[in-house]
Write a protein that binds this DNA or RNA. Structure first.
Length: 840
RNA sequence: GGUCGAUUGGCGCAGUUGGUUAGCGCGCUUCCUUGACAUGGAAGAGGUCACAGGUUCGAGUCCUGUAUCGACCA
């Protein structure tokens, strides 16, 4: 035990000790019943760490540490999400390269030390290697921060969502889905990001308010009279396939079934009726283009309209002159648009309309919601492509109902988060689009045969043998083919796409649990106990994980889902980088100590947004310091056998502590770590402020050996119990103190139970009565502005009979702590307890 | 626009199944430094629980509506 305890250096000391001792290693011999398994969110390593990570990962660690102390073998691995666009972008910028899948792999490629001005084109294989190289560096930084924070994961079990095992599992699961008909390909209009040139899924969309402008444009009826529509996307005029109005709209009813001609391009299109047309919007009649938005897709599908695409994968107007435009005027107009971006084309068409006299009045600016890829910065277009999908209930009522039911089986923390899941599943309007036209990801593990003319036969899917997994179909040949048959007639081609990042992330339980590769482990951990995560990815990560588990295992992937809240600025706004208010986690840990930061994090209940508050961290640090000092005091008094606990106040203390243990345990069982900390902390402070003061003189031996032994024994029992109760929250200081009088780690000790404490049969109310009297004795001194050490000549307790009876049991300690020179006198009175005292 | 959540002393939060004087931390006021602790201690002031209505013997705690804030989804 140090002479002058300090918190400085505790983190480094204990991080090393825990690592060497394997304190948090998973016991692989444990059976499923003995295991508490956690499906940890793998952080995106290409992003930077922020306090939000520290906050939510601490929450999971609190649960993990509690469960470990209750005797569970905690399965708590950590993964890194290094699969997907963020990594690609980071690699491009970091090394100054770009991926060109048509290039051959260069085994000797080395990136330049400094990124050059122009990006170097490299093969997919080289690109992926750079992704792996950079992410390993990032992951080291992450791991050291987590260790420093005291996250009790087993660092021998880490995984990457791009590593070999994850790729194999991801592909194997996809092939299982394919085998059962749950994965399928379809050529369909798809939301498309023109910057990344990839399809995006419903779950990746977000609406953003963008400026737009209504253009009032005249179509021409057969008699030459104008029919006005209003559109924000005049550039799609050449893609118009029909006009649409509400069937009940009397203004347009006479036109249904007739045709009109588009301005400039002179294309004849029908006027049709559909209930989705809003009579209140614009002129009440709209043009349908293939495709301007998702409503166009609905109309196109339900009204069986032709497809007239004019926007390419790059977001520009297609160069190829459309066959449906036949007039010279129209062809010339189209030629002036070809190759333009949608934005430029819009201006050009407006100009042409103005010239032809078909633009009525002024262009009317508005603000309207536009669909974006959440990681993109250009509006999404809709293009028709062949893509892979996995059934998720979006087009199947039975599956949807089954998945909704699964959501109700999960125990949500907090409960109301379940609603978000249900709303999302019930609002799905299509299956899960999983193919992405990107490079760094898990390839779609299939090939297609080529017919005699060398054209792909998309419906003739060639799948790999399981033993081949993971495969890269763009680099390897399927069984029965040789690689020189790639791309030639009668040969094969590989699917060029990779899978959506969620298609792999949805398998984190399978990846960490060793599904299909380590059956022994799998049986010990599946299904998992806990999935902790953020609420904004309920629709993506949580839902997709449920989908995969439901399809493969017919069961839930975990019992509990604990949803963490946001970190808010002190001004209640969500913390964001753009506001420049992000504090780096390592600086926080340096300044306030890991225990202090954890204390703050523990104040955020599941699902509750919590303000970033260094004040709380300081309080946490103060608590840790207090634990050091109080522990030193208790231990320096020496100890005694538990049978020595005889004094009523000592027995009362342990009785009260028994209640605290019960409350903290119940709170932890309900994932309410905040309450567990609160009740422990409340007890601890009164333990320090009142109880230690009361028994101090007795512990010194001033009241005899037996009385001293009672104090010492009870203080030791209380200290041990408190250290255990605090251990999940303040792992560093508690293990430090524990090491002063134990050879092992507090974190591997058993969580306290109330039974033993209750066996001392104390009356917990004694503590309150004693504290009340002590407080009033202090008040006398405080009001007289004298030291607490000042003597009191006489004191009278006026209280109810049972209170007096209680106080008599504690009189000796009270007199010692209050420095009361003479015996207390008592007056029975049926009211609140009052003390009158005369200073010496 | 829909859904969910929040609204309690200056600030940040607790208030479990409705039941006597609504708790806690920070801050604030006053005081205390020599046998654990100044990265400390003691005592104290301060709120009627957003607003309106309702259920009830009784509501911060249940119901309805309004307002404000936030999140998620359109």
């Amino acid at each position: 035990m140090p002479e002058k305890p300090t918190l400085d250096g505790l983190e480094n000391k204990w991080v090393d000790v825990w690592q060497e001792a394997g304190t948090y290693d998973f016991d692989r011999t444990a059976t499923r019943e003995q295991v508490f398994s956690i499906d940890t969110p793998p952080p995106t390593v290409s992003g930077s760490l922020h306090v939000g990570h520290v906050f939510s990962y601490t929450h999971t660690d609190l649960i993990a540490r509690y469960q470990r102390m209750t005797g569970k073998k905690v399965f708590y691995p950590m993964g890194w999400d290094d699969n997907g666009l963020p990594t690609e972008r980071r690699v491009q910028n970091y090394y100054g390269v770009r991926c060109d899948p048509s290039l051959p792999y260069d085994p000797n490629f080395e990136p330049p030390a400094e990124p050059g001005k122009d990006q170097i084109a490299i093969s997919r294989g080289n690109f992926v290697e750079l992704c792996e190289r950079l992410t390993i560096e990032d992951e080291k930084v992450f791991e050291s921060l987590w260790r420093r924070l005291g996250i009790s994961v087993d660092w021998k079990m880490t995984y990457q969502t791009i590593d070999t095992r994850a790729r194999a599992i991801s592909q194997r699961m996809f092939l299982n889905n394919l085998k059962r008909g749950e994965a399928y390909q379809s050529e369909a209009p798809t939301l498309w990001d023109v910057t990344f040139r990839t399809a995006v899924a419903q779950a990746e969309l977000e609406d953003r308010e963008r400026p737009g402008a209504y253009h009032r444009v005249s179509f021409h009826k057969p008699d030459g009279s104008p029919l006005f529509i209003e559109t924000t996307r005049p550039e799609l005029l050449p893609a118009c396939v029909a006009l649409v109005a509400h069937p009940d709209d009397e203004r347009y009813q006479p036109l249904f079934g007739t045709t009109v001609t588009s301005p400039i391009f002179g294309v004849e299109v029908p006027v049709v009726a559909h209930t989705l047309a809003d009579p209140e919007k614009g002129s009440g009649i709209a043009m349908i283009c293939t495709f301007g938005d998702t409503t166009d897709v609905t109309w196109w599908r339900e009204l069986q309209l032709p497809t007239r695409p004019i926007i390419g994968w790059d977001g520009r107007i297609l160069a190829q002159e459309p066959e449906w435009i036949t007039s010279e005027l129209g062809k010339n107009a189209y030629a002036s648009l070809a190759g333009l971006t949608a934005h430029s084309a819009k201006e050009k068409v407006a100009e042409l309309l103005r010239e032809s006299g078909d633009l009525e009045g002024e262009i009317r600016p508005i603000t309207h919601p536009v669909k974006f890829f959440e990681k993109g910065d250009k509006p999404l277009e809709i293009v028709t492509t062949r893509q892979w999908y996995i059934r998720n209930g979006g087009r199947d009522a039975d599956l949807r109902a089954a998945l909704v039911a699964r959501g109700s089986e999960i125990t949500w923390h907090p409960d109301h988060m379940k609603v978000r899941y249900t709303n999302w599943v019930e609002g799905l309007n299509g299956d899960w689009l999983i193919s992405r036209q990107r490079f760094f990801g898990v390839p779609v593990p299939v090939w297609y045969s080529l017919d005699a003319d060398g054209n792909p036969e998309w419906d003739k899917v060639i799948v790999p043998d399981d033993s081949q997994l993971p495969i890269d179909p763009s680099a390897e040949a399927p069984h029965g083919y040789t690689s020189d048959q790639r791309g030639v007639a009668g040969g094969f081609i590989g699917d060029a796409d990779v899978m959506d990042t969620w298609a792999t992330s949805s398998l984190t339980p399978q990846i960490v649990g060793g599904w299909s590769v380590d059956d022994d482990l799998w049986k010990r951990v599946w299904p998992f106990d806990l999935r902790p995560q953020a609420h904004e990815i309920i629709r993506t990560w949580l839902f997709s994980t449920v989908v995969r588990a439901h399809l493969e295992e017919g069961q839930l992937p975990w019992k509990h889902a604990s949803i963490s809240g946001w970190i808010l600025d002190p001004d209640r706004k969500k913390m964001s980088k753009s506001k420049g208010n992000v504090v780096t986690p390592i600086d926080l840990l340096d300044e306030h100590g890991s225990d202090g930061v954890r204390y703050w994090a523990a104040s955020g209940r599941p699902g509750t947004d919590t303000a970033f508050d260094v004040g709380q961290m300081k309080i946490g640090r103060r608590l840790a310091m207090k634990i050091l000092n109080a522990s030193k005091f208790v231990l320096s008094q020496g100890t005694a056998d538990a049978t020595a606990v005889t004094e009523p106040i000592d027995r009362a203390l342990l009785a009260l502590l028994a209640d605290v243990v019960d409350e903290a345990t119940a709170a932890f069982e309900a994932f309410n770590y905040t309450k567990a900390l609160e009740v422990t902390e409340t007890f601890f402070w009164s333990f320090c402020d009142d109880h230690l003061e009361l028994v101090k003189d007795r512990a010194y031996g001033l009241a005899g050996d037996d009385a001293a032994a009672s104090a010492r024994a009870s203080l030791n029992i209380a200290l041990e119990t408190l250290l255990k109760l605090f251990a999940p929250f303040l792992p560093f200081v508690t293990d430090e103190v524990w090491s002063w009088f134990h050879p092992d780690s507090v974190h591997l000790n058993t969580w306290p139970t109330s039974a033993e404490l209750k066996s001392f049969d104390g009356n917990p109310e004694l503590i309150g009565h004693a504290a009340e009297v002590l407080s009033q004795l202090r008040k006398v001194k405080s009001e007289a502005k004298v030291s607490m050490r000042a003597d009191i000549a006489t004191a009278t307790v006026t209280a109810k009979a049972e209170v007096i009876d209680a106080v008599r049991h504690v009189e000796a300690d009270l007199r010692a702590a209050g420095r009361v020179m003479s015996d207390l006198t008592y007056t029975e009175h049926d009211g609140p307890t009052e003390i009158s005292a005369i200073l010496a």
